[in-house]
Design a protein around this nucleic acid. Structure first.
Lengths: 215, 215
DNA sequence: CATTCAATGTATGAGCCTCTCACATCACTC
DNA sequence: GAGTGATGTGAGAGGCTCATACATTGAATG
């Protein structure tokens, strides 16, 4: 009968959408995507279980919003780290390592950013990482053989992306041991692998012919 | 009062565990891991909602069992495809492409095989892919510089694994368009990237120093 | 054979979650 | 200062996971 908010002074929250996104990230860090529930997010934000649905169509929409926030933070970190790297080759290689290190810090965050279901249904998540590509494309061009540079540069970035995500996946699932303990080692490996990849795509690389077919 | 099975002749199913695993794979192909529920699996197998819990401790255990089945099928396919590839370099490169193609066919299957939560909590899933590593290690040894061969060969396989999984992730989330349409293209790209990677780790590769530090 | 028993399935239900709907409250505009 | 749209509350329908008590059956045992 008397809708009085429980843990708050005012009836309206103020900025519930943002608060929910923040809370969502915290919950996911604790219990993972599977353990996350909209109800719990509402509880921690001291609103009724139905309130979140005023701002997000469904559970997935809230998760996607949180993932977008992660993407924003990732980009910021990237800009800090890669700006002061000299050669294009090393810049690309460094990105891979940084990506792995960041994954360890944002843990659950990356879980949603790369959750298969979410990315397939929420295109804005894919767009957000595409902006990353634009950031890196110039470096890729510098590194690649001049022939079909445009195609090859993009292909190189896709390969680097694949490589980094694969390492992150292996890191977070504990393949190499406790993630916190092995971050640095894995980041180093990722950097080295990226270096090898870049070298393989590079100008004077004999073994890798261009436009080579499969099998 | 009278527990009569509904869609069956006999009271006991016969091999409910196996049937559930099969049904689970089908459901996941249709609606993804998120959409899967034990209740639905029970329904399709014409048993009561509680029956599956006689065979699997919880939802995740059933998913893990299904993932293991996928892993078995994957290995079979791999053995067919890679056996008749001549050089070690090309064998490794081919694996990456094959992996991507298989991913497109087993779609949902790979979703669970690589579901972050599952792999982290069910070590048998990680073990199952480790057997893959044993299969490939000899090829990796052939390809790698003789110095610290043991370490480098394993590192190369990790890198290849990372690369392939990353491509699969991008493929299945629709980054390149409808998965069915672009499988071949992506598989080719994966193969090429793998080739570049192998070349980068290879014997006479100047640019990639051994034991090189990060940044 | 009759009996027992472990394995397997059913029925029921507690507790949680997602999402909906009618209604309350508030900030803002005219 | 009344109207209005945005935001929150409370209640609830329907579904799911998992636990528990009970029914059924095939196989081993005497």
């Amino acid at each position: 009968m008397a809708p009085t908010p429980k843990g708050r002074a005012t009836y309206h929250h103020g900025d519930l959408a943002a608060a929910l996104v923040q809370t969502t990230l915290e919950i996911i860090d604790e219990v993972g995507v599977r353990g996350f529930s909209v109800a719990e997010a509402a509880r921690r934000t001291c609103v009724s279980p139905g309130a979140p649905y005023r701002h997000f169509a469904d559970r997935d929409a809230l998760l996607a919003a949180a993932a977008l926030e992660v993407s924003r933070r990732l980009r910021a970190i990237y800009l800090e780290t890669a700006a002061d790297v000299g050669s294009a080759q090393e810049r690309l290689a460094t990105v891979a390592g940084t990506f792995v290190r960041t994954a360890a810090r944002y843990r659950g965050g990356l879980d949603i950013l790369f959750a298969p279901g979410l990315r397939a249904t929420h295109p804005e998540l894919r767009d957000s990482t595409r902006e990353f590509v634009d950031l890196l494309l110039p470096s890729a061009f510098e590194v690649v053989a001049p022939g079909d540079a445009a195609v090859t540069a993009v292909a190189l970035l896709d390969a680097l992306h694949a490589l980094a995500r694969g390492y992150v996946a292996q890191l977070l699932e504990g393949k190499f041991g406790d993630p916190d303990d092995v971050v640095e080692e894995v980041a180093t490996r990722a950097t080295r692998a990226a270096r090898a990849l870049v070298a393989g795509y590079g100008v004077s690389s004999g073994p890798v012919g261009e436009g080579c077919g499969d099998r």
